[in-house]
Simulated scan of single mutants.
Amino acid sequence: MKKWALAAIVYLLAIIGGYWVYDANFKTEAKTPMDMSHESPVSTNESHAHNESGSGHHHESTGTEAGEVKPSFSYKDGKIEIMLKDMQSNPVTNLEVNHEKLMHLIVVNDHLDQYYHIHPKKVGPGKFVIPYQLAEGRYKAFIDVKPKNLNYKVEPVGFTVGNPVENHIHPSLVPDQTFIKTIDGKTVEMKVSSFEAQKPVTLQFILDETTLEPYLGAAGHVVILNESAGQYLHVHPKDEQRPVFETQFDHPGTYKIWAEFKQAGKVRVFPFIIKIK
């Protein structure tokens, strides 16, 4: 009788021990989709499509990284609205301040003779708004932000204001013969170190630096588009204190450069057109 009771106790302990081992080693690995639904995917890739050259920032629309941010853009009744969402349609709220702003919005018309550098305000999770009047025409917008822990590539967003004339022929950009521009009595000369594609290029701007003031935390800003406005570069000064910029043109073609400088309290935009071989 005692042997039977002892055997029963040993058998019961064996069953309990086996169930405990199973629970500890297997059950926790068999979570159902409902168990995992609250666990958000995390990315550690911080190599946005925002490259850095030296200490100057170089934002571009080229690159092979797949974007993890889906911006939506709308213009209606003189107001621009932008919404940033991730691939799961969640608002993108974790943005780095980039030259004093969370967002830089570049807008150009299809002739590339109208250029606007705008800073929409954040009004909610992932949502930015700004009132801005644009003339009738066709435009492209470039939403320049720097999300944390998400790949982002600046892509052109086309939109139309009003009812512009159809079948209008757009003349090709004509490269400048000289790189000297004067606006409001202020003269800027651009010196280019190389006109070859896929090689480092230094853009040095000669101007009256005695009246030069910091603009958005830097000595100036440079935005570059190719003729079709499909390739985008936003370059900041190499050392933030001097109007010297480093960049690279990945493809041959004609490009338009807008150089922005603040002198004696006023921001002026100096346009240049160059040919890259």
Results as ranks from 00 to 15, higher is better:
Thr182Trp: 03
Glu209Cys: 06
Val165Lys: 13
Ser47Cys: 01
Met103Lys: 12
Pro271Ala: 10
Gln231Ile: 07
Asp184Glu: 10
Trp4Ala: 15
Thr187Ser: 14
Ala14Asp: 15
Phe261Arg: 13
Gln114Met: 07
Pro131Phe: 02
Gln241Trp: 08
Ile15Gln: 11
Gln114Pro: 02
Ala259Glu: 12
Ser40Gln: 12
Gly54Ile: 00
Asn45Ala: 03
Val188Gly: 09
Glu166Ser: 09
Thr211Ile: 04
Lys266Cys: 07
Phe245Ile: 07
Lys31Asp: 01
Met34Leu: 13
Gly126Asp: 08
Val235Ser: 14
Gly56Glu: 01
Asn51Ala: 06
Gln241Tyr: 09
Lys85Met: 12
Ala218Trp: 02
Phe73Gln: 04
Ser61Ile: 04
His57Asn: 06
His57Cys: 00
Pro156Glu: 03
Lys122Ser: 07
Phe270His: 11
Val107Met: 12
Lys140Leu: 06
Lys148Glu: 04
Asn109Ser: 09
Ala219Glu: 03
Trp258Cys: 10
Gly63Leu: 00
His99Ala: 08
Gln241Ile: 09
His38Asp: 07
Ser89Cys: 02
Val97Pro: 02
Lys146Trp: 09
Leu13Val: 12
Lys3Leu: 08
His119Trp: 07
Met83Val: 15
Trp20Glu: 11
Glu196Lys: 15
Leu207Cys: 04
Gln88Val: 00
Glu240Val: 06
Glu100Gly: 07
Ile130Met: 09
Val244Arg: 08
Lys79Pro: 00
Tyr19Asp: 04
Thr32Leu: 11
Phe73Ala: 04
Ala66Pro: 00
Lys277Cys: 00
Leu225Trp: 08
Lys153Met: 14
Asp23Leu: 08
Lys262Ala: 11
Glu39Ala: 10
Tyr115Arg: 11
Pro147Tyr: 02
His57Trp: 02
Asp110Asn: 13
Val97Arg: 12
Glu209Val: 13
Ala135Gly: 09
Gly54Phe: 02
Thr187Leu: 05
Ile16Arg: 14
Leu95Arg: 00
Phe272Thr: 04
Ile143His: 04
Tyr132Asn: 07
Ala219Trp: 12
Gly185Thr: 08
Ala141Ile: 07
Gly63Val: 01
Pro175Thr: 04
Asp144Gly: 01
Val157Phe: 15
Lys122Arg: 13
Pro175Ile: 04
Ile9Gly: 00
Met1Asp: 05
Gly67Lys: 03
Arg268Pro: 00
Thr44Lys: 05
Ile276Arg: 08
His221Gln: 11
Leu102Tyr: 10
Ser194Trp: 04
Tyr139Cys: 06
Tyr116Glu: 14
Phe270Tyr: 14
Val269Glu: 07
Val222Asp: 01
Glu136Met: 11
Lys153Gly: 05
Ile273Val: 15
His221Ile: 01
Val188Lys: 08
Gly162Tyr: 13
Lys140Asp: 05
Leu6Gly: 10
Ala135Asn: 12
His104Lys: 13
Lys146Val: 03
Val222His: 03
Gly230Val: 06
Glu240Cys: 04
Gln248Phe: 10
Trp4Ile: 14
Ser72Gln: 10
Tyr215Leu: 06
Ser53Trp: 01
Gly78Pro: 02
Ala66Trp: 01
Thr62Gly: 05
Lys27Ala: 14
His221Phe: 05
Ile224Pro: 02
Val92Lys: 14
Ser74Cys: 00
Lys277Ser: 09
Met83Ser: 11
Asp184His: 08
Gly253Val: 02
